[in-house]
Amino acid sequence: MTAQSTADLHSHPGVRFVPLLGVPGITVSLVWPVSRVHPALIDFVAVVRRCVRN
């Protein structure tokens, strides 16, 4: 019961990942505090979006 990303990043010779049906998907989000926005954050979000599109 994990995200597709877990299988993409973590393989283990003793573990097989099997699609799970009938459950809601997962939304992956970037989250940051509105009170402390890093000056390069907007660029970072743009880079992530571009990589995910490709």
């Binding site: 019961m1 994990t2 995200a3 597709q4 990303s5 877990t6 299988a7 573990v15 097989r16 990942f17 099997v18 699609p19 799970l20 459950v23 809601p24 998907g25 997962i26 939304t27 992956v28 989000s29 970037l30 989250v31 940051w32 505090p33 509105v34 009170s35 890093h38 954050l41 970072f44 979000v45 992530v48 979006r49 995910v52």
Partner: peptide, 26 residues
Amino acid sequence: VAVRRDDVSDLNLHVEPIFEEGRLAA
């Protein structure tokens, strides 16, 4: 900035959805 997969309902946090993914059993 953090990658989150849970429901964030904190008004002090900005949430930017990036992509959707399915679930697997291990």
